[in-house]
Design a protein around this nucleic acid. Structure first.
Lengths: 259, 259
DNA sequence: CGCGCTATTGACAGGTCTCAATCCTGGTGG
DNA sequence: CCACCAGGATTGAGACCTGTCAATAGCGCG
């Protein structure tokens, strides 16, 4: 059972930035976010009603059960969705990266607690106008369907990890997931020697993986002892051989057949 | 590690029924399936190109990685989606009930192995024409989005169960999930004394819950000893007091705030 | 009756959690 | 400048839960 730190509480009550007016055609997530397939007209309408909000690391974006009168795309930074049991056990159920979508059209209250993992900038739309647009812009709803189906696939992969993998496999899986993602950002294939930055604390990794933070720490140390990773500070990780780490993840060797 | 039984293998190679021509307006899932919001014209078009297939208990509908040139709604029966690690550990990642949708538009190969849990009847559409319809019938894609978002919510609830609940809580959760569903079918609220039928074998429950079948069996026996359930044959369960079982599931008392 | 399959139960081993101490690092204030 | 502190991370010892291996029971069916 975890209690919230003083730092987190201070950040929760900090004022929320509202930033105006960046241009959509210069947006870093223009071709991956929910607006990806919109045409110029549609985009200029979106541009006229969008607004930005930013959140500091540890700051809550919304609490489960609270009213949420906007939906948003993550522009920069990392946020996470968590669920909690009565006694405080918490499980991360979503890791939101740039271009990912937050909130559910048509739903008034948040189903999950969303917290900024790093500094996060959101591109927000009030829920009502967005719901209307969903009806009028098929590009928008088609793209959201596509993204939701991808998220469902990711959730199912995650379920396999939670239900059936050992602690060691969970850690190896998590590191390879991050490595693949960083490679994708650099438009390269993952492989060979790689250097990555873990986006989560040990505690957040534990919540992601369904472990305790002690077990996370121990397994990371074990992978280090076995020469599969080297640590560079608390967050930096050097992978001398990506393939060897994948072997430890328990996944099928050729997991890449999904279109 | 599980091996497939002889019975399963025999059923895999058994011929597949193809049934023709039931009328959509008499369909038991008319108002809950992907076609729920379609108008009469749209429905008559769907009716003209749909076809039925049925599967026996244990029979594979599709194997992960295989070509799948149709999508389908479950009309009657129960099917499940599973993923498998190299060494045979398997995790169920979807439980498909009447009106649930199988397959992903635009995807050529199945991402998961789908197996009939009971006798299953599917209402199928070839993938190509269905993809076209998705573009032309907004009702269809909106409904699919709605269903996919619901499935994502279910998957996230499932992740909490897999990552953070004890074996006892997992079993109690599973029984309450089934009980809620059976109550919903009878259009009643779950509560008080209830009688249900488990749709899965102990092994399938284990794959659903991320446990071994021995642990499932032991925890069911423990709940029985504690008077929370009574068994009636292998599949029948009597719940003397639904609320007491919910207490054992670890969930928040009022989990019902989601719209 | 014997066979195949599902389910139950036991004994034991091992993996992960719990509780606790210690270390490390960056930031703060004297 | 240096001591101190807070929070994150590491490490250890022991307990407990769940998995593994194995034997047995119950049931339907040929």
């Amino acid at each position: 059972m975890r209690t919230r730190t003083l730092t987190q509480i201070k950040q929760d009550i900090a004022p929320i930035d509202v930033i105006g007016g960046a241009r959509c055609d210069e947006c870093p997530i223009r071709y991956r976010a929910v607006c990806a397939h919109c045409n110029a007209d549609e985009l200029s309408y979106l541009e006229s009603i969008k607004f930005y909000r930013s959140f500091e690391p540890g700051q809550a974006i919304v609490w489960a059960g609270d009213r949420m009168d906007f939906v948003a795309s993550v522009v920069t930074g990392v946020a996470n969705l968590t669920q909690t049991l009565e006694d405080g056990r918490t499980q991360m159920v979503g890791l939101l990266l740039p271009s990912d979508f937050l909130g559910r059209p048509g739903r008034e209250r948040a189903a999950y607690t969303a917290v900024a993992t790093s500094r996060v900038v959101l591109c927000c739309f009030r829920r009502k106008p967005f719901d209307d647009m969903m009806r009028e812009m098929p590009q928008l709803s088609h793209r959201l369907l596509e993204m939701t189906l991808d998220e469902l696939d990711a959730a199912r992969e995650w379920m396999l990890l939670l239900g059936r993998k050992t602690a060691r496999e969970k850690i190896a899986s998590f590191i390879t997931i991050i490595a693949r993602r960083e490679a994708a950002l650099l438009k390269r294939l993952p492989g060979g020697r790689m250097q990555i930055e873990l986006p989560l604390t040990r505690e957040a990794m534990a919540d992601y993986l369904g472990l305790t933070l002690e077990t996370v720490s121990r397994q990371i140390s074990a992978l280090k002892r076995d020469g599969l990773i080297q640590l560079q500070g608390k967050r930096g990780v050097l992978l001398p051989d990506f393939a060897r780490l994948v072997d430890e993840s328990g996944d099928d060797a050729d997991g890449g057949w999904i279109s």
